[in-house]
């Protein structure tokens, strides 16, 4: 890939990693509450995949979506304010960590029902197809969603109607604490997609350039009218499922083995070996990212609580009269 912005890819992954490390810290400090699902270890997927999308494409994600939001261009300030539940947050604080929305970024959640976003994605793509708009709807979901009926209904519908959906499955091997092999009779996820005549490809989700290349190719086919595509990104969650998870279901050794494949460390080494960046550049990047996150925290801290008098707002669309 000539002209590839390698430093930009590394920067996005680093922004996600440092943002979430700060979130974990703020969670312990009681600044962020509710559920907090960290994406640490999986940064290459959102970072690489998002590069294949255009501004007027639609993005749907899950409750583990901070990385997708940042990679899609939602400002860290509005995102952090949402984590706090402040009115200045991208969902005015009503959603929190699991429900990030941004109309301008065409980022439609932030869905905390496993599989719940897949039928929506088919509908987004149906609208684009009916209106003859050359857009792609990118739908991220975990491998746990494959067990849901909505996965099968949405894949069938998208294939039957040749809808422009990019199904992006983040296979981190565990649905909360249930290993894929303990929940699926057939663990070959691509086969499931192919059974609906959706072209499918498994990709190393720890390699940001591999993710990007596969998504660029698949998105181009979808955009050209070739119907839906399915990509399985093989990745791993380094942290617990949420902040409440004691991780009884996987052993330390497995986690440590995967951590050796950290997408950020690996890509950093790759760039250094290729002479694309030196220690000074990396230090500068770290400093810039740290400053961005510090500004986001300051923004969230300075944000306001929505007045309780506004409680019943945003249930229905305000209408004249």
């Amino acid at each position: 890939m000539t002209g590839l912005d390698r430093s930009g890819l590394l920067r996005t992954m680093l922004r996600i990693r440092r943002f979430e490390e700060k979130c974990a810290e703020l969670y312990s400090a009681g600044k962020i509450r509710g559920f907090l699902h960290l994406y640490i270890g999986e940064e290459a997927v959102a970072t690489g995949a998002m590069r294949a999308l255009q501004p007027d494409d639609a993005v749907l994600a899950t409750y583990r979506e901070h990385g997708h939001a940042l990679a899609r261009g939602i400002p860290a300030t509005a995102l952090m304010a949402e984590m706090y539940g402040k009115y200045e947050g991208c969902s005015h604080g009503r959603g929190g960590s699991m429900h990030i929305f941004d109309a301008q970024a065409r980022f439609y959640g932030g869905n905390a029902i496993v599989g719940g976003g897949l039928p929506l994605a088919a509908g987004f793509a149906l609208a684009d197809r009916m209106m003859r708009r050359p857009r792609v709807t990118a739908c991220f979901f975990g491998e746990g969603a494959v067990a849901e009926g909505e996965f099968h209904e949405a894949l069938n519908l998208a294939s039957l109607w040749q809808l422009p959906v990019l199904f992006l499955c983040e296979n981190n091997l565990y649905a909360m604490g249930t290993a894929l092999a303990r929940s699926e009779a057939d663990t070959d996820l691509c086969e499931k997609a192919r059974s609906y005549k959706v072209p499918a490809q498994a990709v190393d989700g720890m390699d940001v350039e591999a993710v990007m290349a596969a998504t660029v190719r698949a998105a181009a086919e979808v955009r050209a009218g070739g119907g839906p595509q399915f990509l399985e990104f093989r990745t791993y969650r380094f942290r617990a499922h949420s902040m409440f998870d004691p991780e009884l279901y996987r052993d330390r050794q497995e986690v440590e083995t995967w951590k050796k494949r950290c997408p950020i460390a690996a890509y950093t080494r790759q760039l250094q070996a290729a002479g694309g960046s030196d220690d000074a550049q990396l230090a500068a990047m770290e400093a810039e990212v740290a400053a961005e996150i510090a500004a986001a925290v300051a923004y969230a801290e300075a944000g306001s609580w929505e007045p309780v008098e506004f409680l019943a707002r945003d249930v229905y669309t305000p209408r004249p009269g």
């Binding site: 897949l118 039928p119 088919a122 509908g123 209106m131 209904e153 069938n156 519908l157």
Partner: peptide
């Protein structure tokens, strides 16, 4: 198809996307 969740969800998505 007989996919109530699928096509109702698709209706919601289509409505969000201008239909």
């Amino acid at each position: 198809p007989l996919s109530e969740s699928g096509f109702v969800g698709a209706g919601i998505g289509a409505a969000l996307n201008g239909m």
